[in-house]
């Protein structure tokens, strides 16, 4: 895959997409002025935590021996990581690709499509990591973290963001109209509701349970919950590999598609 990325950047040496750092700089500059827009991303998981974790949690009591808020918090963190990365890699990318023609100007410089892909995904990750840190602090303050392993949920949610951004950017390269984005919700909403977010996966009968266990957000939630509750099991290796591969495949498709779209 690295070889296929390298082909898209003729005449450059070193890691494919390394010049994406410049695009990252651009995004930091843009958000320097509109940092308030950045802050909003933190409120989604916070409100869900208050509403579901404590509001509903008072009725539910304990799940799998855990207070409901402890059970739900890592799942909300994983969902927020996915949604944040998807938002950046779909709407924002589409606008820059089709309307602002940001990349037409970028590709007239030494930067290539692989740099655009890596730069945008990296930005989505950095943005996601800000939320992850804030949310971990919140979990610590509210006593929802049962293990020091909770700190690993930060790289964990970056991994979720990486996978989502990879898939999101790749999908966006096929989008033609704003209406096409309605499809995104068709995938994300069921993922949010049914990935063992609010109730354990053992609630599902077979074979539905197996299907759920194969979806990306389930893997992300499984990973973060194992870390924040301090109950890691061998399956978290599967979580990591699954999300990593998904992100890499998405990025590889993205840089190839961007090359096709922009370098005609």
């Amino acid at each position: 895959m690295l070889a296929s990325l390298a082909r898209l950047m003729p005449g450059t040496t070193g890691l494919p997409g390394r010049r994406g750092i410049r695009l990252l700089e651009r995004n930091v500059w843009v958000y320097r002025r509109s940092w308030i827009a950045l802050v909003t991303g933190f409120f989604e998981p916070l409100f869900y935590l208050l509403g579901m974790g404590y509001g509903m949690g008072a009725l539910v009591g304990e799940i799998e021996g855990l207070p409901y808020a402890v059970f739900v918090a890592p799942a909300l963190m994983a969902t927020a990581a996915m949604n944040g990365a998807l938002y950046d890699s779909t709407f924002n990318l589409f606008y820059k690709l089709r309307y602002a023609r940001t990349y037409d100007a970028v590709l007239a410089t030494p930067l290539g499509p692989a740099d655009v892909a890596s730069g945008e995904v990296a930005w989505a990750l950095i943005r996601g990591s800000l939320y992850a840190v804030a949310f971990v602090v919140l979990m610590l303050l509210l006593g929802l973290a049962l293990s020091p392993l909770v700190l690993l949920t930060i790289p964990g949610s970056l991994l979720i963001g990486f996978a989502a951004a990879g898939v999101g950017t790749a999908a966006t390269t096929w989008m033609r109209r704003w209406q096409d984005f309605d499809l995104v919700a068709v995938f994300t909403l069921p993922l949010f509701l049914f990935s063992a977010t609010f109730f354990p996966v053992t609630a599902y009968p077979e074979p539905i349970r197996t299907i759920v266990e194969l979806t990306p957000l389930y893997r992300g939630i499984h990973l973060l919950r194992a870390l924040s509750t301090g109950q890691p099991d061998p399956a978290i290796v599967l979580d990591v590999v699954y999300l990593l591969v998904l992100g890499l495949v998405g990025m590889s498709i993205t840089s190839r598609r961007l090359g096709k779209l922009l370098l005609r």
Binding site: G11, A108, P110
Partner: peptide, 15 residues
């Protein structure tokens, strides 16, 4: 085809 990035580094473009 081979030196695209190197050439673009030396060009000015007004689209």
């Amino acid at each position: 085809a081979r030196d695209g990035a190197r050439i673009r580094a030396l060009l000015g473009v007004v689209p």
